[in-house]
Computed example of a mutant assay.
Amino acid sequence: MESYAVGFARPDRWSPGRPTEQRHPWHAVEAHRPPAELDGEVELAACGAIVQVWGSQDWGRVGAGRTACPECRRLTGVGQALSAVG
């Protein structure tokens, strides 16, 4: 099982010409060491975005939300929550 930290796409890390508001600011960063050691570091996300790692976040939880990067979710295999059958 791969281990992932959570990265946040900070506005000051975005490329020039990109929108100042991003709909999916949370990204997965492959953790080659404990996420706490990555906390605050600037890393490359699974999707290729440059992000700042937030080691205290859980990618499994963040990745299932609406603000997580869809490409990072796909690449890391984070599943979507299933709706109840009524």
Rank of each mutant, 00 (worst) to 15 (best):
W14S: 08
L38D: 01
H32T: 09
D58N: 12
V78T: 15
C47K: 01
S56W: 11
P34F: 06
R23K: 15
S83V: 13
A31D: 04
T20N: 07
S83K: 12
V6Q: 01
W26Q: 03
G86I: 10
R73G: 01
E2A: 12
W26N: 05
H27R: 00
R33E: 14
L44D: 09
V29P: 05
R73E: 02
E43F: 04
G40R: 14
T67H: 13
Y4M: 08
A84T: 15
R73I: 07
M1E: 11
V53L: 05
G60S: 08
L38F: 06
T76Y: 03
W59S: 00
R74H: 15
D12I: 09
L44Q: 13
R74F: 08
P25F: 07
R74D: 03
G48I: 11
A36W: 15
P35I: 03
M1Y: 12
R73Q: 11
V85I: 13
E37D: 11
A36F: 14
R61L: 04
G79Q: 15
L82C: 03
A46M: 13
F8D: 03
R61D: 03
P11H: 06
Q22K: 07
R18K: 11
E43D: 03
A46Y: 09
V6M: 00
P34Y: 10
R74A: 06
L82N: 05
G86H: 13
S3L: 15
R23L: 06
E71C: 02
S15W: 11
E41V: 04
W14P: 00
A31S: 11
P11F: 04
H24R: 15
P70V: 14
V42P: 03
Y4R: 14
D39W: 10
D58H: 10
E21I: 14
Q57R: 14
P25K: 04
A81V: 14
G77C: 10
